[in-house]
Design a protein around this nucleic acid. Structure first.
Lengths: 341, 341
DNA sequence: TTGTAAGCGTTATCAG
DNA sequence: CTGATAACGCTTACAA
């Protein structure tokens, strides 16, 4: 059997509760006994049993991490490890542990979360999917269980603490950036419209056009679930238009890579024949050919702020719900230039 | 306060212990009371408290996941999410939860693991780093705590359950593949030699050359921590040799992408001027230009088998330590051809 | 400042 | 097949 608080108490010649107080760093305890106890813990190699502790204190110093259902492509995106790093660091700083949850379907995920929450495995939950996790969010809200969403909720924006970028503005800015270069025929390639982020970016793109007095051409707007076989074709169609775009706003670096390839196959040169700017600025953007001008959305911060704020609202009940907007910045590389026609 | 086993017992008109038995699916219990209890649980929305359960049963039904210290580049590699998916699925199938651990330094990681283990948060541990996690492994071994390593241990191979590819053979095969194409000047670009995987692949490469009666040219062998600024230069030097290689074995798709770029800058065409084959076969390999011939190492399986087997050795003490070798297969795309000189 | 004792919600060991 | 009852290891009033 492992060494318990009692063993320590015995060795240090104090009561178990005293040991407990030392662990909790209770102020009203003499420096002397504190040292005595600490020495005893040291000697025995004592480590508190979390289960006992959690049970007694009715709280776990742990955060639940809800990942997109595993078949989701989001999983493959380099976005994922980075945001995880951020979350992890925010948690570690406050000495919180991380508990993970996945599932093959949304139903499985929900079930796992319910277990986690009702089973008192965690004190709060980080949601990693801005998709239509309808039930999940309403479950947590209803239970008034602390949670934070990375991304933007599809509704009840004011009532859900979330951390996100200003994707509307970011997309507007990059589109303006392209327009400033002299482009008037600007296309948009985005992912599924189910993702709020896609919608935001699309709207930002449109707004920029409108502001510049450019009419929106629906033929220039392409939605692709993910870029592989299907995406290639979309790009082909786009470029086969009578008036093909001279610049493209692509909603994700990974997609942009696919676009780049298709373009190359078509013999269209970037940035000479067409300019491209994309989002996320993952390592890949730097390694693409040509290196992609991309919006850095501070993925790490997204995660870091999420766990940090979640912990705040756990420890300080009646912390208000908030919206945290993480800044972004355009990283200029070599995928943009003036239109050549 | 949440609904407990007692509430259920009360409603169902049985003893708490009976409820517990129903939960555990104890065979010797009448179908009748079983149904009665289940209905009561349903009605009250009962969910077992894990902390209490773990405390009483001295086991957690949870796996610990030890990730590379977060500043590690491995984190950025698409390898990571996929292996995680595999681990997660293996765990879910057996209804195990996942607990994560990171740290900014190896020391922090070790500390976190010790807490996790001694604190009885998990029943076993998955190690995700085949680096010199010396202390970690010896700590776990010493404690006889169940764990599995993804990758190959640098020593005590027979005593450590691990799941890995036969990287030696894989590298030998791809090198032979290149040799069969007619290449005699084959180079090797790998990551840090601290990684056992790099060493294995390097050795396989060498063996193939030896078998074919080709002398090993140390100038053809390049080790790069990671491919960005530094790597570019290495490739340049390689190609500036009087007798530059006509084919390259690259230890990782991500690196290969960097190599591809540098080559392009140098005006060297793939596969016309030089052939390339790499490892891992992540999505990226398919999207590179040209699409990379790459060894699929079944990353998902690596993770899946890891958790599956870990659980086995948790549930069945005195399960022998094993080595699980996951199969690999060469996926041919468009980055290889005959040497043109 | 420290000790005593009553939980926290389960499981597990005995009886019956 | 089912019911008491004692752990499990810790926290937290309440006393002292």
């Amino acid at each position: 059997m492992a060494v318990t608080i009692k063993d320590v108490a015995l060795l240090a010649n104090v009561a178990p509760s005293t040991v407990s107080r030392v662990i909790a760093d209770n102020p009203r305890i003499s420096e002397e006994t504190k040292q005595k106890v600490k020495k005893a813990m040291e000697q025995l190699g004592y480590h508190p049993n979390f289960n006992a502790r959690n049970l007694a204190s009715q709280s776990t110093h742990a955060l639940g991490l809800v990942m997109p259902s595993s078949k989701d492509v989001g999983f493959q995106n380099p976005f994922f490890p980075t945001v995880l790093q951020g979350i992890s660091e925010g948690a570690q700083e406050k000495n919180y542990a991380l508990h993970m949850t996945t599932g093959k379907s949304e139903k499985e995920v929900l079930e796992a979360v319910v277990q986690m929450v009702q089973g008192k495995r965690v004190d709060g939950v980080v949601l990693l999917s801005s998709k239509v996790e309808d039930q999940l969010i309403s479950y947590l809200k209803e239970r008034e269980f602390p949670f934070v969403l990375i991304g933007k909720p599809y509704r009840d924006i004011e009532e859900i603490t979330h951390v996100d970028n200003d994707n509307f503005r970011a997309a507007k800015e990059v589109t303006e950036y392209l327009i400033d270069y002299g482009h008037r025929k600007v296309g948009f390639i985005g992912g599924s419209l189910e993702l709020v982020v896609t919608v935001d970016r699309l709207n930002g793109y449109k707004q920029a056009l409108v502001n510049a007095g450019i009419v929106i051409n629906e033929d220039y707007i392409v939605q692709e679930e993910f870029l592989r076989e299907g995406g290639q074709e979309a790009v082909r169609e786009l470029m086969a238009l009578e008036q093909p775009p001279t610049a493209l706003v692509v909603a994700d670096d990974f997609m942009a890579l696919g676009v780049l390839n298709t373009l190359d196959e078509l013999g269209i040169k970037v940035p000479d024949d067409i300019s491209i700017v994309s989002f996320n600025n993952v390592l890949l953007a730097e390694m693409a050919k040509p290196p992609l001008t991309s919006v850095d959305i501070n993925i790490f911060q997204l995660g870091y702020q999420a766990s940090k704020n979640l912990i705040q609202s756990i420890e300080n009940k009646n912390e208000p719900t908030k919206r945290l907007i993480i800044s972004h910045q355009l990283v200029e590389r070599s995928s943009c230039s003036e239109p050549n026609s």
